[in-house]
Amino acid sequence: MTVLPKDIPGDSLKVTVGTANGKPGDTVTVPVTFADVAKMKNVGTCNFYLGYDASLLEVVSVDAGPIVKNAAVNFSSSASNGTISFLFLDNTITDELITADGVFANIKFKLKSVTAKTTTPVTFKDGGAFGDGTMSKIASVTKTNGSVTIDP
C-alpha cells in the first residue's frame, strides 16, 4: 500500500482569532474563523484551546458560528481559569461536516476595569488537533492569535 501526501505544500487550514475593542463593562464579541476549508477536504472534527487573561476578560458565552451545522449536538465549549476549550465533531461522520469558510465560534467577553488603554492577547495554547471530512488528521493548520483592547 502506498500512502501519498494529501496536502499540497503551502496549503493549510487557517484558524484565526479576531479582535475587538471596548470600554470597561462593555461586552464584545471576538470571532474565531476558519478559511481554506474546502482545500483541506472539509473539517469533520477539531479540538483546540485559547488562552486569555482572566483578570482583564470575563467569558460571558461561547457560541457556535454559522458554519457549524447542528451545533447543539456537534459543538461544545467550556471556559475557566483563562482557557477556553473548543470541540467539534460531526456526529453523523459525513452529513454535518464544516464545508465552508466563515465564523466557527463567537466568544463574548465582558471587559474588566483598567486604568490605561490595554491590549490583551487571545492566543492559541498547545494541544488539540483538526481532522478532515474523512477524519484524517489535517497536518497543516495555520493559527493566528487575536486580541481585545480595553480603553477606559
Results as ranks from 00 to 15, higher is better:
T2S: 14
V3A: 10
V3M: 06
K6D: 13
D7W: 12
D7N: 12
I8A: 08
G10F: 10
G10P: 13
G10H: 12
L13C: 10
K14S: 13
V15N: 08
V17T: 14
G18H: 13
T19W: 14
N21W: 12
N21G: 08
N21S: 12
G22T: 09
K23D: 12
P24F: 10
P24C: 14
G25Y: 12
D26M: 09
T27R: 09
V28L: 09
V28P: 10
V28S: 10
V28C: 08
V28R: 10
T29M: 14
V30Y: 10
V30W: 12
P31V: 08
P31N: 07
V32M: 07
T33K: 13
F34E: 03
F34G: 08
A35T: 08
A35H: 13
D36A: 13
D36C: 05
V37K: 07
V37C: 08
A38F: 07
K39T: 11
K39Y: 09
K39V: 09
K39R: 10
K41V: 11
N42S: 12
N42K: 11
C46E: 01
N47M: 01
N47G: 03
N47K: 03
N47V: 01
F48W: 07
F48P: 01
L50C: 09
Y52E: 03
D53S: 11
D53G: 10
S55F: 15
L56V: 12
L56E: 14
L57G: 10
L57W: 12
V59G: 06
S61E: 11
A64G: 12
G65N: 07
P66Q: 10
P66D: 13
I67E: 11
I67D: 12
V68L: 12
N70E: 08
A71E: 14
A71L: 07
A72C: 13
A72P: 13
V73F: 06
N74P: 01
N74Y: 03
F75D: 01
F75K: 02
S76R: 02
S77C: 15
S78C: 15
S80M: 15
S80E: 01
N81E: 15
G82I: 15
T83P: 07
T83M: 06
F86A: 00
F86I: 07
F88H: 00
F88L: 05
L89V: 00
L89R: 02
D90T: 02
N91D: 15
N91I: 11
N91T: 04
I93A: 01
I93M: 03
T94Y: 15
D95M: 01
L97K: 02
I98E: 00
I98N: 04
I98T: 15
T99F: 08
T99A: 05
T99Q: 07
A100L: 05
D101T: 09
D101A: 06
D101V: 06
G102M: 15
G102L: 15
V103R: 05
V103I: 06
F104M: 02
F104H: 02
F104K: 03
A105V: 05
A105H: 00
N106Q: 08
I107N: 04
I107A: 02
I107H: 00
K108S: 06
K108E: 06
F109V: 05
K110C: 04
K110A: 04
K110N: 04
L111P: 05
L111I: 06
L111H: 04
K112T: 04
V114W: 10
K117S: 05
K117Y: 03
K117I: 05
K117F: 03
T118Y: 08
T119P: 08
T119G: 05
T119M: 12
T120A: 10
P121Y: 05
P121K: 11
P121E: 05
V122N: 07
V122T: 07
T123A: 08
F124C: 03
K125I: 03
G127N: 01
G128N: 00
G128C: 00
A129W: 02
F130N: 00
F130C: 04
F130T: 01
G131V: 02
D132A: 05
D132G: 03
G133Q: 05
G133D: 04
T134H: 05
T134L: 04
T134R: 14
S136T: 03
S136N: 06
K137I: 03
A139P: 15
A139C: 04
V141C: 00
T142M: 09
T144A: 06
G146A: 06
G146S: 04
G146T: 07
V148E: 04
V148G: 09
T149F: 15
T149K: 14
T149Q: 14
I150F: 15
D151P: 15
D151F: 15
